[in-house]
Design a protein around this nucleic acid. Structure first.
Length: 490
RNA sequence: CGGGGCGUAGCGCAGUCCGGUUAGCGCGCCUGCCUUGGGAGCAGGAGGUCCCCGGUUCAAAUCCGGGCGCCCCGACCA
């Protein structure tokens, strides 16, 4: 009776850590704020990554790789940008160690100090724009659409597995365009790509909106965001796509000659999602038994658990199990036959539920006799019997059905926990009682926003694109068409 | 970066206040038997710089001083 996880209702943070660790996704490491992503967790990331990579390439982008280290001088060129990241930058000041003859300690060699310190990239805009300067000269070089898969470092003061760690994995897209319109279109397109990834693969239906000036990416003129509500009713920013205007082009002097022979600054975008998506996945779908992974990104889609008493039945049951495994595998289903004889079936049932495997097939002597298997789905925990004849088709359909119903469940969750509010008092009630997203009309200033956060702890997660109706702003009392979502956030 | 807590076997902890046999317990691990339709049972076994450095003492996991590390709660962030 080991591996017990804390119920969500008792302590959601502990539930989260218990699930991450017991399901074998990740562990704390010897380095403060850094985690080890374990094989099962990394397999989820690989599935997300492979899918997104395909989508990035289908929309005309190419992968490339830029340095981990960035000279401080590059970094300081865009004022907003430095301000945004300086507080959490890791700095490389030496390029050699030595053994101190007196203390017998290994220490940075004072003789080997960098003439110019390097920072470890918190994001790559600066090194990339410094490079784009050399790549872009003519309108014929545009658009330039580059993506990189990389690790980045942001020295977080309060780390949390997958959600905030000092080092994390992500993809960052960086593009250059001849016109503002085209760059804006690009930023919106990738926003859409992210939404597709989240809905169709992660089975999460986040809100799409834009960030207020105060919440925007450092250096952006517009930030498009995807905001989802976790099961503790706190909001999580799942991904962002930025229209950067000409800020980086001006900072790095990136110009092109247009068709009329005039020099112009290029227009830029950047966009990224990270291993944080795994955190979103865990907290969007998980329950007290552990993870629920949607089939399209599940490392194991189907687990087969044979049940038998040693001896007579063993051969028959295993043979049938292997046969089914082969059939499913040939149909392209990621299937695991767990014939480990040192673990008992009950233990395995719990283990694979904890790991969020969407479908479990159990078969024992009785089933083999009757030519059926027991099929259990992880999302609803329903058990049914399927005949072995035509099993592959039924399982394929079940996986697809499970994928859809997880998405529907998540849509319902968002709908149920989005509460319209007309006054500050109503807003406070929603926040204090942890009801989720408060939906409000808003025409306040950045100062109003800051005061809101001080008073309630909540922030404006995004401005919704819908401006179809007019209402009264909850802080200014003015008429406005702008609606925002307000929530406590990660 | 502020506040709190914790460092004792792979993991979770007791023992520390009030110094004194061979430092315990649960889980896990190893061997064997037995079991297998929802985290089995029995028997035997291995496993410890008690976070580090210094001090007090006949004697330190325990008392004193200093250091290090990590976790949790708040402000900042993907």
């Amino acid at each position: 009776m080991a591996e017990k996880i804390t119920p969500q209702s008792e302590d959601f943070s502990r539930w989260y850590v218990d699930v991450v660790r017991h399901a074998g996704l990740a562990d704390y490491s010897a380095v403060r704020g850094c985690m080890v992503i374990k094989p099962y967790g990394f397999a989820i990331w690989e599935n997300i990554r492979d899918q997104l990579d395909k989508m990035i390439k289908e929309t005309g982008h190419q992968n490339a790789y830029f340095p981990l280290f960035i000279p401080v001088s590059f970094f300081s060129k865009e004022a907003q940008h430095v301000e945004g990241f300086a507080k959490e930058a890791a700095v490389v000041t030496h390029y050699r160690l030595r053994l101190n003859p007196e203390t017998r300690q290994i220490e940075p060699d004072p003789e080997a100090e960098q003439t110019e310190p390097l920072i470890v990239r918190p994001t790559s805009e600066t090194i990339i724009w410094n490079t784009f300067k050399d790549w872009i000269h003519s309108w014929r070089d545009l658009p330039l659409k580059i993506n990189q898969w990389a690790n980045v470092v942001r020295w977080e003061m309060r780390p949390r597995l997958f959600l905030r760690t000092a080092e994390f994995l992500w993809q960052e897209g960086h593009t250059a365009h001849a016109t503002a319109e085209e760059a804006m279109e690009e930023a919106r397109l990738m926003w859409q790509v992210y939404e597709t990834l989240m809905r169709d693969y992660l089975a999460i239906a986040p809100y799409k909106g834009t960030k207020t000036p105060g919440e925007r990416f450092a250096g952006a003129e517009e930030t498009f965001t995807l905001e989802a509500l976790m099961k503790d009713r706190k909001a999580l920013q799942m991904g962002t796509s930025h229209f950067l205007g000409q800020n980086f082009a001006k900072a790095f002097d990136v110009t092109f000659t247009n068709r009329r022979g005039e020099r112009e600054y290029v227009w830029a975008t950047s966009w990224g999602v990270s291993t944080r998506l795994i955190g979103a996945l865990i907290m969007s779908h998980g329950d007290d038994r552990g993870l629920k992974i949607p089939p399209r990104i599940a490392p194991i889609q189907v687990v087969i658990i044979p049940i038998f008493k040693s001896g007579a039945d063993e051969q028959k049951v295993l043979e049938t199990a292997r046969n089914i495994t082969d059939q499913l595998r040939r149909a392209g289903i990621r299937v695991l036959l767990d014939d480990d004889n040192t673990k008992r079936p009950g233990w395995k049932f719990n283990e694979y539920e904890l790991k969020g495997v969407p479908v479990r097939i159990a078969l024992g002597p009785r089933d083999v006799e009757n030519n059926v298997v027991e099929v259990a789905r992880r999302d609803t925990l329903e058990k049914t019997q399927f005949p072995i004849d035509g099993l592959v088709n039924r399982i394929s359909h079940l996986l697809e059905q499970l994928q859809q119903s997880m998405l529907e469940e998540n849509k319902r969750w968002h709908k149920e926990n989005t509460i319209p509010v007309a006054t500050i008092d109503e807003l406070k009630e929603v926040i204090e009682q942890k009801k989720g997203f408060a939906l409000a009309f808003w025409s306040g200033t950045t100062e109003d926003e800051e005061r809101l956060q001080e008073e309630t702890g909540a922030t404006i997660r995004c401005i919704l694109p819908d401006d179809s109706e007019e209402g009264t702003c909850i802080v200014t009392g003015q008429k406005t068409r702008q609606k925002v979502l307000i929530a406590m956030a990660y």
